[in-house]
Simulated assay, not measured.
Amino acid sequence: MLAHALLAEQCGCSLIGNLLGDFVRGPPPQHYPAAWQNGIRLHRRIDGFVDRHAASARSVARLPAGQRRWARVALDVYYDHLLACDWARYSSLPLAQFAAGVYAALDQHGAALPPNLARFAGFMASRDLLAGYREPEVIAEVLMRMAGRVRRPNTLAAVFPDLTTARDGIALDFAQLFPATLAFARREVTARAVQPAG
């Protein structure tokens, strides 16, 4: 979530729309503002780009075979941890200030958000979760919570030690992946901004 928020800010796309991408299934709801709909679509294209990128595949391969089925879900969270830990490399705005801006934007639009995002936004702000991503124990807790919400059997609750063991290699992957993803997002926003209507 932290990476999607920063990508939205740095490529000039809707923050709310990008964050909605994890909370809306199917086509973007037509009653949402166009910017939100475009943000949802961009979020999904970013996810596809990350999944196909060689650096992401290397990160998956760094985990034990038994963890790989759920590796991309776990890495999505762990990449946020690496981003938070090395925040000044990617943003001139202090992480605490950026996080507060995200919470404020979600609160401002709370009545229009789907209930699952509205609930998570409140929890996220109350725990200052985005800034908390710097702390390993917060990441371990997030993965545990995710494991409990997934209805299928999964390995998310047990993956954190393996992520920690592979941290240096995954950090190298992320240092290549994030700038490439930002460049991709900016190209996507630019390409769609200049397309004729219709």
Rank of each mutant, 00 (worst) to 15 (best):
R186L: 06
G169T: 06
G132V: 02
R119N: 13
A191D: 15
R44H: 07
Y133R: 07
V77Q: 04
T190E: 12
A112Q: 13
L163V: 04
R69E: 10
D86Y: 06
G39E: 07
R152W: 11
A191I: 02
M144N: 04
V194C: 14
V194G: 09
P196H: 11
G26Q: 05
E9F: 08
P94K: 12
Q97M: 09
A96T: 07
T190P: 00
N18Y: 06
T155A: 15
E9H: 14
T155N: 12
I170N: 14
A96K: 02
P94H: 08
L7Q: 04
R62L: 15
F178S: 05
D173C: 12
G17M: 05
R119L: 09
Q97I: 08
A185D: 03
Q176A: 10
V102K: 08
S14M: 07
N38H: 08
L113D: 12
V50R: 08
F98R: 07
L130S: 01
D168A: 10
H31M: 09
G101W: 03
G122V: 00
E135W: 09
P115V: 11
W36R: 06
A84E: 01
F123I: 01
G12W: 01
A96N: 07
Q108V: 11
Q195G: 04
H53G: 01
F120N: 08
A183K: 11
P94T: 05
L15S: 06
P196Y: 12
A193D: 04
A112I: 01
N154H: 10
A166D: 09
A57P: 00
A112P: 01
L172P: 05
L156K: 07
L63R: 09
R72H: 13
D162P: 00
P196E: 07
L15Y: 12
G148K: 15
P153F: 13
Q37G: 05
S91F: 01
V60E: 13
R151M: 10
Y78V: 09
D51W: 11
L156F: 10
L130F: 12
A3I: 09
Q10K: 12
